[in-house]
Amino acid sequence: MNVKLSPRPINFNMNLYLSEGYELLKKEFVNIALATFLCLIMSIIPFCGFLAMGNLYKYLRDVKNHRPSSPGDIFNFDNFSTYFILQLIMIAGLFVLFIPMFFIFPGIMLLQNEIAGIGAGIFGFLYMIFIFVALFYFVLKGFYIPALFSLKGITDIKTAWKMSKIMTKGNLLMIFIFSIIVLILSQIGAIACGIGVLVTMPYMYTTHYIAFEDALKQIEYDEITEIGIKEKY
C-alpha cells in the first residue's frame, strides 16, 4: 500500500487519548511498564533520551497492533544519528536564546547607577518571560515531531517541523491542556511513592502514543485508493 502524508490541522480528541491510553496500558501493563523502565535507563546514556522515547513509541505501536515485540526493542540504535542531530539543534537553539542573558546579568552587577540597574533588571525579567513563552511555543508546535520521526521514519528535521506546525494549527491550547493533565497524572506516582512512577509514567507514553496514532491516521492517504476513486468518477 502506497501511503503518503498530507499534513492538515488535526481534530484533537483529548478524551479519546486519555481513555484509550489507559485501556492500552491496562491490557499490557507489565510489558509496557518494563519498556518504560528500560526507556528511562537508556535515557541516562548521553544523547540517547529522544532515541529511547522514539523506540518506546515504536514498541507501543507493535503492542497495540499485536505484532511480535519485546521490551528489549527499546535498545535499538538504528536511528541514533537522526535524534542526535535533533538534540544538537535544540541545544544550539537554547544557547542562542540565552546569549543575551550572558550580558544582562554581568551588566547589572557592573552598573553603579541605581536607576540603570533597575532598568536592566526589568529587562532581564521580561527577557526570561520571553524565553519561557518561546520554549512553550516551540514545544507545542513541535508536538508531533516525535511521531513523525519514530512512527513514520521522517529523518529531515525541517520537514518534520513544518508538518508538525500545520498539524497543531488551532490546537495549541488543547495540546497544552492535554500535556499538563498527562504530566500531572504521570508524576502522581513519584510524589506519592517513588516506585509508583513505574505505574503512572507509562500512562504518559501510552496517551501520547494514542494521540500520535490518531493524528497520523488523519493525515494519511492511500495513493492507490485515491487513483481508483478518481478513475471511478
Rank of each mutant, 00 (worst) to 15 (best):
M128P: 03
L34Y: 04
Y17K: 01
A147L: 04
K165C: 11
N55L: 07
L111E: 15
S81M: 14
E231Q: 09
M101N: 10
T155L: 07
H66M: 10
E226L: 10
S70I: 06
M42Y: 08
G21S: 08
L185C: 10
P68T: 08
F149V: 05
I229E: 14
L51E: 02
Y83N: 00
G153W: 09
I85F: 14
T168M: 04
I41R: 08
K230L: 11
E231A: 11
G107H: 03
G228K: 13
A134D: 04
F75W: 15
L135V: 15
F47W: 13
G54R: 01
D214C: 05
S81L: 14
K230W: 06
S43H: 06
I188Q: 02
I118M: 11
K165Q: 12
N113R: 08
A192D: 05
I210H: 01
A116L: 15
N15A: 14
G117Q: 13
K165R: 14
L216M: 13
P7A: 05
L88E: 08
L40H: 07
F212V: 01
L173R: 11
P7S: 05
M163K: 02
W161C: 07
L25Y: 00
V139P: 00
V63E: 00
K162M: 11
L173W: 12
K58M: 12
Y137A: 09
S19V: 13
P68V: 07
Y83G: 02
F132S: 12
L88M: 15
N13Y: 08
I227M: 12
I99M: 12
A33T: 12
L86T: 09
D156H: 09
E223H: 06
Y83A: 02
C48Q: 05
S164N: 06
L140E: 03
L88A: 12
N171V: 00
E23F: 10
G72D: 11
Y137N: 11
A147M: 03
F37S: 09
I219P: 01
A33H: 04
A35L: 06
T168P: 01
D62Q: 12
M163P: 01
G21L: 02
M42A: 13
T225F: 10
L56R: 03
M163L: 08
G196K: 03
Y205A: 06
I129E: 06
V30T: 12
L16G: 05
L94T: 07
L135D: 08
I157Y: 09
D156I: 07
I145F: 03
F138D: 02
N65A: 10
M109H: 13
P71K: 04
E213G: 02
S69R: 05
L18A: 06
G54Y: 03
M42C: 11
M53L: 13
L25M: 08
E220V: 05
M90V: 11
L5A: 05
K141T: 13
Y83M: 04
F178G: 00
G93K: 14
Y127C: 02
N79H: 14
M201N: 09
I224C: 04
L185E: 01
F176W: 10
G153L: 09
V182K: 01
G153T: 10
Q218V: 05
I89S: 09
T207L: 01
F102K: 08
I175E: 00
S19W: 08
M201Y: 13
A160W: 01
F95P: 03
L16M: 09
I227T: 10
I118F: 10
T36S: 15
G196P: 04
F37H: 07
V182H: 01
A215H: 00
E223M: 07
N76S: 14
I210W: 00
